[in-house]
C-alpha cells in the first residue's frame, strides 16, 4: 500500500497537469448528457435514467480507451518506464496503482453526470435504487474496459495503437450480446448462443441497470478486470 500511493497520486494528478484530462471530462459530459436529452429523456415522460444508462457502454467504448491509452504507452515512449521499473516498487503495485488512478478519474467523469440524476429527482420521483445500481454498473464496466486499455497500452509505445486496439476489443466484447449480433447468431444452436451472450458486457450491464445486482454480473466484471490486469503484469515482467 505504501508503494502504491505515490504512483496513484502522480498518475491521477497527471490527468490534470495537461489540458487532456479536462477535454476528456468535458467531451464525456457533453456526450453522455447530450445523447440522453436528444434521445427522449424528456419525451419519455419517465423519471428514470434508463436512456442515459443505455448510452453509457457505447460512450465508454471510446472514453475509457482514451483515458487508459497513456498509462503505459507514454512511459514506454518517453523511456520513463526505465525510471519506474528501477524504483523499489513491484510491477503489480505499479499496474494496480495506475489502474486505480485512471479508474478514479473515470469516477469523477461519472460523478459529474450525477447532475442528470438530481434533475430527474427534482422533476419526478425516480427509483433511486435503480439509479444507484446503474451507476455501480457503470463503474464496473468502466473498470473492466480500463483493464483492457491498460493491457493494450502496456504492449506498445504508441498511444494511438493502444487506443485503436482497445476500442476494437471493447467493441467486440460489448457487441457479443447485442441485437445486431443476436441476429447473426440466430443460425447457431441456442446453447452456443447462450454461452456467447454470457460473455457479453452489455447483457450483464443491462441486468444491473434494471436494478438487479446479480452475482453473475458482479463476478463477470470483477474477474475480467482481474484477469486483464494479471496479463498486464505478466507482460511487463517479460
Amino acid at each position: 500500500m505504501n508503494t502504491l500511493l505515490p504512483i496513484l497520486k502522480k498518475e491521477f494528478l497527471g490527468y490534470f497537469r495537461s489540458p487532456v484530462g479536462y477535454v476528456i471530462l468535458a467531451v464525456f459530459h457533453l456526450l453522455a448528457v447530450g445523447l440522453a436529452f436528444f434521445s427522449g429523456y424528456y419525451r419519455s415522460n419517465q423519471a428514470s435514467l434508463d436512456i442515459f444508462f443505455s448510452f453509457v457502454p457505447w460512450i465508454f467504448l471510446f472514453f475509457i480507451p482514451a483515458t487508459g491509452m497513456r498509462l503505459w504507452a507514454e512511459e514506454n515512449r518517453s523511456g520513463s518506464i526505465e525510471l519506474l521499473m528501477t524504483l523499489p516498487i513491484s510491477i503489480s503495485s505499479a499496474v494496480i496503482a495506475k489502474f486505480l488512478a485512471a479508474w478514479g478519474f473515470i469516477g469523477i467523469a461519472l460523478g459529474l453526470t450525477f447532475s442528470l440524476a438530481i434533475t430527474t429527482g427534482y422533476l419526478g420521483d425516480p427509483d433511486w435504487g435503480k439509479i444507484i445500481s446503474g451507476y455501480f454498473a457503470c463503474l464496473l464496466i468502466a473498470g473492466s474496459f480500463l483493464s483492457i486499455s491498460s493491457l493494450c497500452s502496456a504492449m506498445t509505445k504508441n498511444q494511438v495503437i493502444a487506443f485503436v486496439i482497445s476500442v476494437l476489443i471493447c467493441f467486440f466484447a460489448t457487441v457479443l450480446g447485442s441485437q445486431f449480433l443476436a441476429s447473426l447468431v440466430n443460425k447457431l444452436p441456442t446453447a452456443i448462443a447462450n454461452v456467447v451472450s454470457n460473455f457479453s458486457y452489455l447483457i450483464h450491464f443491462q441486468t444491473m441497470t434494471r436494478g438487479l445486482i446479480e452475482l453473475a454480473a458482479l463476478s463477470f466484471f470483477l474477474t475480467t478486470t482481474a484477469a486483464f490486469l494479471a496479463i498486464n503484469i505478466i507482460i511487463l515482467k517479460r
Binding site: K10, I81, E82, T86
Partner: peptide, 15 residues
C-alpha cells in the same frame, strides 16, 4: 532497487 541509484541514458522524467 532500494540500494541502487540509477541515471538512465535518456534522462527520463515526466515532462
Amino acid at each position: 532497487k532500494k540500494r541502487v541509484g540509477y541515471l538512465p541514458e535518456s534522462s527520463a522524467a515526466y515532462p
